[in-house]
């Protein structure tokens, strides 16, 4: 019963919106506004073809490499900066600056330095996605509980064990929040880097559709990007629930008391 209700709540509004869209466009001749039926068939024709392997897969591969590198780099340098307060004081204004640079403006720079290569696109993704992970890791490391830290010291848990069992775990809620931001920034940069200088990839293809006024195909491309975003956020939730189950349950318990 409650499952039925949950499903009903989840699908009603989307169905209503699609219905409204369908009704409003049934006699539409507006060039810019697609109709549900043709859009769906265009979507299938456009993306369930070799384009999937020539455009979607390479884009997602670059995205995956870039974001993974950003996460590893961000956590590693965040741990160092967060652990040593003098390093943090030394770096803080610089980090504030780098975080504030809108990541897409680095695309032209990487284009100059690395040319229109895959490396350049991965570099663009890393350069934008690394900051939220890094800064959140620093915050997480800094906010390690002092009593817990003392506990580790008095039980002689130090070095690698301290990092693994204390620092990384207690910073993980902040780190995951950073990873989430890194995913969405990475996706944006994947698209932008391809729009700027590329001959393949999702961003490039969608811009091509737009330039050739293939409106339905362009919309279907936007839909693909949207679906990727939704899929990523779903995967993130799965991982996050696993990694932070202790954190969420603990908060629930604390709130209940």
């Amino acid at each position: 019963m409650s499952l039925l209700r949950t499903i009903a709540y989840a699908v009603t509004l989307p169905l209503l919106l699609i219905l409204a869209w369908w009704l409003l466009t049934i006699n539409s001749t507006n060039f810019f506004v697609p109709r549900p039926g043709p859009l769906a068939s265009t979507f299938v024709d456009t993306w369930f073809s070799e384009r999937f392997t020539t455009d979607v897969v390479p884009s997602l591969t670059r995205f995956a490499i870039g974001v993974t590198l950003a996460i590893v780099l961000g956590i590693a340098s965040g741990l160092v900066i967060g652990t040593f307060s003098w390093v943090r004081r030394f770096c803080e204004p610089l980090l504030e600056f780098f975080r504030a640079v809108p990541p897409p403006v680095l695309v032209p720079v990487f284009l100059v330095v690395l040319g229109a290569s895959d490396t350049m696109k991965v570099a663009v993704i890393v350069s934008g996605a690394v900051w939220p992970v890094l800064l959140n890791t620093v915050e997480g490391v800094r906010s390690v509980d002092s009593v817990l830290s003392d506990t580790c010291r008095s039980y002689r848990v130090h070095g690698a064990a301290r990092f693994r069992h204390l620092v990384l775990r207690s910073a993980s809620p902040q780190i995951m929040a950073g990873v989430r931001q890194a995913l969405s920034i990475g996706l944006i940069l994947m698209v932008i880097s391809e729009m700027f200088a590329s001959s393949s990839g999702l961003g490039f293809t969608i811009i091509q559709f737009q330039r050739s006024f293939a409106v339905d195909a362009m919309w279907s491309g936007i839909l693909v990007l949207g679906l990727i975003g939704v899929l990523l956020s779903f995967l993130f939730h799965l991982v996050e629930r696993r990694v932070l189950s202790w954190y969420h349950s603990q908060r629930e318990v604390q709130r209940g008391r």
Binding site: I188, G221, I222, L225, G226, V230
Partner: peptide
């Protein structure tokens, strides 16, 4: 989660 830049072609059009 739809990346806002996905709307760039639409905006241009």
């Amino acid at each position: 989660p739809i990346p806002s830049v996905a709307l760039i072609p639409l905006a241009v059009l």
